[in-house]
Nucleic acid binder design. Structure first.
Lengths: 324, 324
DNA sequence: GTGAAAGCGCTAACAC
DNA sequence: GTGTTAGCGCTTTCAC
């Protein structure tokens, strides 16, 4: 592979000029430009990122930290991040944290050694490891530190709308499968649920359930047995909602006729179950895309107009509700 | 951040000695070791990967090229790759190729500029871009070039077993939703289907269907209308199977009592639909893990014992079949 | 406008 | 066993 020196020689200029040309910094004459362009084409030259990084102490790597790419929420997010990153000539490094602060730290250390340009951090946990590094960070759906920009969904309002819809469809005895206590988005979604139900003449049950499939099934089984009169479920995540749907069907319940379900997330999978899932959909791709754009702005030293972006969630009516 | 020079000074040795210690190459005395260890701890030194890369023309980056991380098959694969990579101190870069050879090439070029250590390439397409680079590659479920090591599933045998099971369960009029013509794994799965059905006294239909949800739904709708007497479906992918399941249910068919379905892939989602999907499961995680281990061996200059690994697929009986 | 040269942090001869 | 030093390929200051 050719290097800058060869290009310079071939173009009859110095390496400094080639470098200036490459980085569009400083002046380089028209003739020099042409010669350099020709030399580059001829030698099929592509600048060495490693050498550049060493020199500038900067890279075009973005670290994407997610709990587990296997969770249906994160592939869509990762896709958005990668798309935007690529379009700005950044490369994304995938990190599965398992919500383990030590693992997160390990990644951060490893990547710091590579002059990583920034991180996009997403988690379902209220962890807060060594983010006192001087690398730009954008947090997704959790607040790490007041100084760290965040992209979130309007969880309270989304949950309120979703729950309200359940009521509008005639549910009178509903359970809220709330996510882990203490986890921001989960707490907010509960808040929305409460806003929608408070003061109404309906029965409510609040049950904690993790955002994973199997445990959600167990939780659903338990309460469907304990409260067979339940006719509506508002789940804090699509995964939980789908688990409840499956369990309800296995127990002989008819969804949506005798039990209605509304989820939260807007994961692709919601379209694939039957009946397909009515849900409060976050614009996952948009969140990822936005976060990445913010991060790149920060990396490139631009000021952020808004440090905290709140993207509204939208009710998507499908088959697990009866309609108003 | 401290550098090797400071460590050397602090430990009272030269940088060469520190470097030898770091890389466990050449000799370094016990006393020197101790001093260096102390200096490293004191300065919280971590070697600079970029400088190392520039010097060695090698990195610890692995490029994972998948068509689209959003396809349910790939997150599980990515997880395996990342887990193994991390355990060997490698970092994985995520690349969504969209099965577009030009995009693949773009990634390869970008990463070559970073001294990428190797690639794991997976695709549903029969593309073959510029893989004439001198970086190690392992291919997943497709043969790129005879010289490139591959990890595949035994698609023929898996499909044969899956189809046979459908027959054993009493299906007599079955359609094979085969994947794209010309795509290796899809062709092989059709072969297995034919092996199981040939010479038997049953009706078969062979229909082409992409490995995506919406188009698969359309395909399923069409043939379920055209051949209402069909009582069994063997789908070449779980995504297609799930699409067919959903469509069948929407059309009022009773799965598994009046229509049975067997998929292929073993994707997590199969457990979440109801009834849950009977499928020929590939050990996706194992495939990813194996491929990564092979790649790392190649990167580190070890000989591969086997260049072509074939991992057997296993029938997982769940709810879309009636049992024998 | 352009070039010479120092320096980014590390590795790897080679000499001692 | 250990140290000196010349690169690795690029950026950037400073002088011309």
């Amino acid at each position: 592979m050719a290097n800058i020196k060869e290009v310079a020689k071939n173009a009859g200029v110095s390496v400094a000029t080639v470098s200036r040309f490459l980085n569009k910094k400083g002046y380089v004459s028209e003739t020099a430009k042409e010669n350099i362009e020709m030399a580059i084409a001829e030698l099929n030259y592509r600048p060495n990122h490693v050498a550049r990084s060493l020199s500038t102490k900067q890279s075009n790597l973005i670290g994407l930290i997610v709990p587990d790419i296997t969770n249906p929420f994160f592939p869509e997010l990762a896709r958005a991040v990668e798309d935007i990153a690529l379009s700005f000539d950044y490369t994304v490094v995938l990190c599965n944290s398992d919500e383990n602060p030590e693992k997160e730290e390990q990644y951060i250390n490893m990547l710091t050694q590579k002059y990583i340009a920034g991180f996009i951090v997403s988690s379902n946990q209220l962890t807060s490891p060594h983010y006192d590094i001087d690398v730009p960070i954008v947090a997704l759906d959790r607040a790490i530190h007041p100084s760290i920009p965040t992209v979130t969904t309007d969880n309270v309002e989304g949950a309120r709308i979703g729950t309200q819809y359940l009521l509008d469809c005639g549910a009178t005895n509903i359970v809220c499968m709330r996510g882990p206590v203490g986890l921001g988005p989960a707490d907010d979604r509960l808040k929305g649920f409460l806003q929608a139900t408070e003061g109404k003449d309906i029965q409510t049950h609040i049950i904690e359930s993790p955002f994973y499939f199997e445990p959600s099934e167990k939780v659903a089984e338990k309460f469907l047995k304990e409260f067979p009169e339940v006719d509506g479920i508002f789940a804090s995540s699509d995964t939980s909602a789908i688990a409840a749907l499956k369990m309800a069907q296995a127990m002989g319940r008819d969804v949506p006729n005798d039990l209605q379900i509304v989820g939260f997330d807007g994961v692709q999978m919601g379209k694939m179950v039957s009946p397909s899932l009515t849900t409060v959909a976050q614009d996952i791709y948009e969140m990822g895309a936005y976060a990445t754009k913010m991060l790149i702005k920060m990396i490139e030293g631009q000021e952020l107009l808004e440090k905290n972006i709140n993207i509204s969630a939208e009710l998507v009516v499908r088959g697990t509700t009866r309609g108003e």
